[in-house]
Amino acid sequence: MTEETKKTKIGYYPGCAITKCSTSEEYGTSVLGVSRVIGPELVEIGDWNCCGASSAHATNHKLSTALSVRNISLAEKDGYDEVLAPCPMCSQRLIISQNDVHEDKKLREEVEDAIEMPVSSNVKVSNYLEIIKNYSMDEIAEKRKKKPEGLKVASYYGCLLLRPPKILKFDDPENPTTMDEIVAAIGAEAVDWEFKTNCCGGGFTLSRPNVVVKLTHDILEGAADAGANVIAVACPMCHANLDMRQKNIEKEYGRRFNIPIVYISELIGLALGLKPKDLGMDKHFIDTDFVVDAFSNIEE
């Protein structure tokens, strides 16, 4: 890695779910914590707004597009070439919206009128795995302090990082490997399993919990049967559904999984020797002590 890229400043678009005092704040905390150690430098873009998430795109395409694109325009205004949106709901919406306005001139004009800014097609929106893979793999190897023991990680990608593949252009939509590479880089074992890209039920957490319980059951079962003892995620919705629903699943299916669900950023943080509390390891529903303890050996 050249000095040039090391210094890269990347616009940071946290999105609602991972900011402080939100349901997935540990994701944001750990992403920022890790970036302070291995870069790249993340700077929050000014006065960003909610991308509208599923609720906007499911009910009002133009609204969804404008809400998302506004953030990209703000990032360009702040002078960033690249924006990290760690929440895949956000990154997917931002990229799709950017693509939609690029392909549809009329939509572009309407959106520009609504957000009162020109839309930008120069800013690249990246997800968290992309950022790590593109900027930080060498740094992880260099600055790794703890070697995990006995961790068998099922890398779970879900939907939003990968689909639609033609627009997101990230990894293999059927058999992605980026997260597995990161897991390997921190010295843990990535298990081969079949449910990497299955849907967890996403936004149906509240409105259709029965759907979520079934889908997350299948995913947990797939991970457990493949021998995984922890599931790594990079999505607040995947995390919430898998972490919060294990009790309901036990009630419904009679199988107790008790598998900790951790953010990939938390795993990186633990490997770098960051304090578990600073990574939000205490904020989970399923106890993460087992994962934290796995990182007790200092690397030679």
């Binding site: 499911a58 990968l162 689909r163 639609p164 593949p165 939509p173 849907c199 149906f204």
Partner: peptide
């Protein structure tokens, strides 16, 4: 009920 997982389009 469509969860927008986009498996179908993919």
């Amino acid at each position: 009920l469509c969860a927008s997982c986009i498996t179908c389009s993919t």
